[in-house]
């Protein structure tokens, strides 16, 4: 009995999603009266013992270089072996690009029930019931996991990182890794920008900005807030902004602490992608824009006047000016 958490790494470092998964897994272990252990695959440039501060007692490390490439088929075999070797009965992964591919395969390999896009700790008062996102954020479902081994793929920004004191015991895991069939021939990392799904604050623009040349005022606000930038679907479809910035039902779904919607009317498809944001600020000249109904704070006015003023005030607060 233990909770095994995949702390996935990118180029040797742990991202926010891995730390969220570790914190969630540690809390879950506490709830189940068992221990939390981490699984790290591939070469890492971080002190693994320090993962103990997120509440894991042990870190199992399979340092095989072949694992620096995420091939879901290869990863699944290795993780399944690690689950068997450690006797884990709950596996926690992040529902990021890596985790969602692996979790599905692992569910089949271990014949273990999977809760993808989970947003809460399980309710174990009657079985093992995990809340997950359904209908693209318009609702949630309480899913009962009905097998001995359970897999939880945790949505991004759904659980707060909890760091305390502690050192984990690092154990090397000797698992033979069969090479996969996928060859990686090129990698293109977006550098310098905050990835949207990981951002705690997001400033997003819609057609109200009138054209791509006007994005400067939005980027200024984003910079002052240390926020990522996003856009609505019409904006991406008009090629004003790159497609990877499109949030909404058919773009990416995000759940930042702060979502500032600028010149976006708030169609239901857009709301689906952002309505799990903790706080929503809507700035729109049309007081009838449906987005105001989903907002916590609203400003009815000309965005070209409002945005620079807001940016100034944010800078004042942060002591940038």
């Amino acid at each position: 009995m233990s909770v095994l958490i995949l702390a996935d790494q990118t180029e040797g470092h742990f991202k926010k999603t891995a730390l969220e998964a570790l914190s969630y897994g540690a809390k879950l272990a506490e709830q189940l009266n068992t221990t939390a252990e981490a699984l790290v695959l591939g070469t890492v440039n971080e002190d693994l013992a320090s993962l103990g501060k997120y509440g894991v007692k042990k870190v199992h490390h399979a340092a095989n270089e072949a694992l620096n490439i995420v091939d879901a088929q290869v990863y699944t075999k290795v993780i399944a072996e690690a689950v068997n070797a450690t006797g884990a009965n709950v596996v926690v992964l992040s529902h990021n690009n890596t985790g969602r591919a692996i979790a599905a395969r692992l569910s089949v390999r271990l014949k273990a029930a999977l809760a993808p896009a989970a947003v809460s700790l399980p309710d174990t008062s009657d079985g093992f019931v995990v809340k997950k996102v359904v209908f693209s954020g318009k609702a949630s479902a309480n899913v009962s996991l009905n097998t001995d081994i359970k897999i939880i793929s945790l949505n991004q920004n759904a659980f707060k990182i909890a760091a305390g004191e502690g050192t984990a015991e690092v154990v090397s895991l000797n698992i033979s890794v069969e090479p996969g069939k996928i060859k990686v021939t090129a990698t293109d990392k977006v550098t310098g920008e905050i990835p949207l799904t990981e951002a705690t604050r997001v400033v997003s623009g819609g057609r109200g900005l009138k054209g791509p040349e006007n994005w400067g005022i939005l980027e200024d606000l984003a910079k002052a807030l240390d926020a990522a930038t996003a856009c609505s679907r019409p904006v991406a479809d008009s090629n004003w902004r790159p497609h990877h910035e499109h949030v909404g039902q058919t773009g990416i779904a995000i759940a930042p602490n702060l979502y500032v919607a600028v010149g976006i009317s708030g169609a239901i498809q857009h709301l689906a992608g952002v309505n799990r944001s903790k706080v929503i600020v809507v700035i729109n000249k049309d007081a009838e824009a449906p987005f105001f109904k989903a907002a916590d704070y609203g400003v009815v006015g000309d965005i070209f006047e409002v945005l620079p003023k807001l940016t100034e005030e944010v800078k004042k607060l942060k002591g940038i000016v």
Partner: peptide, 19 residues
Amino acid sequence: LTSIKSFELPPPKAGVKII
């Protein structure tokens, strides 16, 4: 392997504060 116990809609927003 799984079964859905129930669905939930998100709680309604308290209402927007206009500034």
